[in-house]
């Protein structure tokens, strides 16, 4: 992959400012918020952020056991809460997604 020049990088990143991003971090949480700021180390500042947390493994196992054998997929809720303005250090980011309403 050809390395990206600074100007190209800036344009790419500026395009996503104020857009809604889904940022996954290493402990499996997902943060959904508006991109406000980023830098060289991919540190990301999100505004109006909601935090989503996957159910703990024990709960998944418990649900699988209680549902028994069957083809229906398990239904477990992510717990979410509002955390507002956050900065996510780049080193913990595992995935960045751009989110949009499907028309």
């Amino acid at each position: 992959m050809a390395s990206v020049t600074e100007q190209e990088g800036v344009e790419f990143l500026e395009h996503y400012l104020t857009k809604t991003l889904r940022v996954s971090v290493s402990d499996k949480r997902v943060f959904v918020g508006q991109l406000k700021c980023t830098d060289k180390d991919c540190n990301v500042i999100l505004a109006l952020t909601q935090e989503y947390r996957p159910p703990p493994d024990e709960d998944i196992q418990a649900a699988a056991v209680s549902q028994g054998e069957g083809s229906a997929p398990l239904q477990l809720q992510f717990t979410n809460r509002y955390v507002g303005l956050v900065v996510i250090p780049g080193q913990y980011i595992t995935k960045i997604e751009h989110e949009e309403w499907a028309a």
Partner: peptide, 15 residues
């Protein structure tokens, strides 16, 4: 995203 951000010089903020 990672590629674009790593192209930035140290200290440059996209905000």
């Amino acid at each position: 995203f990672r590629e674009a951000s790593s192209s930035l010089p140290t200290g440059r903020l996209i905000k």
